[in-house]
Design a protein around this nucleic acid. Structure first.
Lengths: 209, 209
DNA sequence: CTCCTTATGAGAGTGTTGTCTCACGACGAG
DNA sequence: CTCGTCGTGAGACAACACTCTCATAAGGAG
């Protein structure tokens, strides 16, 4: 399952191997639960990992940090995700692809993502430690602009990134599904459209002239 | 404080007055706690309302429904909110104003709104029962388009409303503050900009022709 | 193999969201 | 004024998120 980060160098000292095994067992059990779609809570994780609740809390101070790390390990990296469109230069198409990719992977772990948002929304500090998927993804998708738009109008570029941070997000997906009543498919399509619209609008403000 | 909805007609039967008083006491206590900025939970509300926990749960099956109703009574109605711009015809300006207004009132009850989102995000059913502030507000702001854009391109109009539902929202505000690290003021400004951009983009797609 | 460090398990305890039962007591109807 | 309904309070209960303590046992070092 999860291999120790580096089995040779830091494992020398003391009972580091044992700790590494326990930690991996907890993370693996969490990922199993996430994939199975069941409820992910500390008691369930501890049971699945054949570990006591106390031990689980020893390795992960709270459910949020556990979910964060488990999800970070499950989600493919944004760099890999955008490889299929590496040759595409149009930022609008790239953002559309990136948005669709992110929201689809969120749908794959919907329960866990909902739990993470729920746990972090009440604590603005905690939210900062969430996996920064969206930012890496947005940066990657807008990379073609780094030498052009980003330099000619850095403020507008920063605003575009903020615009997209709101839309290219699990929160947006859940808003569209829960409040607007869209199906998952329609919600993804709507968010993709919104993201593309924002990107296109930022690139051609000439319409008003 | 909170007056019975209709003190004359339905209060005739039995102990309806008593029930009305208890219900009002709970709601009033909740609003007091919300305004004071303190933690809003059932035990605290019950204590403040001089009522037992069990009674509080009898009137409001869960914290979410209590928060929903308390917040709905506190927030000014969108119709009133947009009165100052009743004479403004430009949808872009109207949306900007509406967004700023909504996000500022969310900031005024930030704790309660965060609690409500936290409680409803894990349950897509429950989310549907949240106060529909944003939709009424968006409809109101886009009202000048009802006879023009809405009729010429109803699909695009619906998409614009969905775009805005994502941006004109507490979720967007918290994303900008917690994840992007913006100050409340900057977050509001950013969301206002995004909402205006989306509206403007929907109204002049001619740029591509 | 022995000793000792230390990871671990077990349990109690706190605070929260709820659910359920039961007895009290106040209010209204007769 | 008495009777009975019904709102209410109190408390037990379960589940989850933690925190803390203490005893056990597994692991490595000599």
């Amino acid at each position: 399952m999860t291999l120790p980060a580096d089995p040779s160098s830091p494992a020398r000292t003391g009972r580091a191997n044992q700790k590494e095994r326990t930690r991996s067992a907890i993370l693996d059990a969490t990922r199993e639960l996430i994939k199975s779609g069941g409820a992910v809570n500390m008691p369930a994780v501890a049971r699945a990992a054949l570990v006591s609740d106390a031990t689980a809390y020893r390795y992960f101070p709270d459910l949020l940090s556990l979910l964060r790390e488990a999800l970070a390990g499950i989600l493919p990296s944004p760099v890999d995700a955008l490889k299929p469109i590496a040759h595409v230069g149009d930022p609008v198409e790239r953002i559309g692809y990136a948005t669709r990719w992110l929201l689809r992977s969120v749908l794959g772990f919907e329960g866990a993502v909902r739990a993470m948002i729920s746990a972090s929304i009440t604590d603005s500090q905690a939210a900062a430690s969430r996996p920064g998927q969206r930012f890496a993804l947005i940066d990657q998708a807008l990379a073609p602009l780094n030498e052009s738009f980003a330099k000619t109008d850095p403020k507008a570029f920063a605003q575009l990134k903020r615009d997209l941070a709101v839309v290219v997000s699990a929160e947006a997906l859940f808003t569209l599904m829960d409040l607007c009543g869209l199906t998952p498919k329609a919600a993804v399509a709507s968010a993709v459209h919104t993201a593309k619209t924002l990107t296109a609008a930022a690139l051609k403000p000439a319409a008003e002239a």
